[in-house]
Computed example of a mutant assay.
Amino acid sequence: MLKHLAKLFRRNTEPGADQASSAPPALNNAARAAEGESASIRKEALARFMGLATAHLGDDERRRLMDAMLVSFDTYGNSSEAFEEIALGNEGQKIGQWFVIQCDWKASEEVEWQIAEVASSFGISERWSWKEGVDEQDRTVPAGLCEVADWAAPLGLEMLHIDIGSDTYYAILIRQDDAESARQAALSAGMKVLRTPEFEAAHA
Rank of each mutant, 00 (worst) to 15 (best):
I95W: 09
Q93L: 14
A107E: 05
S129Q: 12
M159A: 11
R32Q: 12
T140N: 10
G156I: 11
Q97W: 07
E180H: 11
V118C: 11
A153M: 02
S108M: 14
A116H: 10
K131Y: 00
Q137R: 15
I95M: 13
H4Y: 12
L52S: 06
G77L: 03
F73P: 02
F99Q: 00
K192N: 08
D60E: 05
L194C: 07
P197A: 14
K106L: 14
K43F: 06
A185M: 13
Q137M: 06
K3R: 09
A116R: 15
I174K: 02
A53C: 05
H161M: 13
H161I: 03
I174G: 07
G144F: 13
D59G: 02
A53V: 01
I172F: 06
L155Q: 12
S40N: 03
R195F: 10
T54F: 06
E158R: 01
R139E: 06
E180Q: 11
M50H: 08
A82V: 02
S79T: 05
E132F: 08
L52A: 03
L70M: 11
S121N: 11
D18F: 09
A119D: 12
M50K: 03
A107C: 04
Q102D: 12
E126C: 10
R42T: 02
G16Y: 09
R64D: 04
R139A: 06
E44P: 13
E180D: 14
S21A: 04
T196Y: 00
G16K: 05
A68P: 02
L88F: 05
S125A: 12
L187S: 10
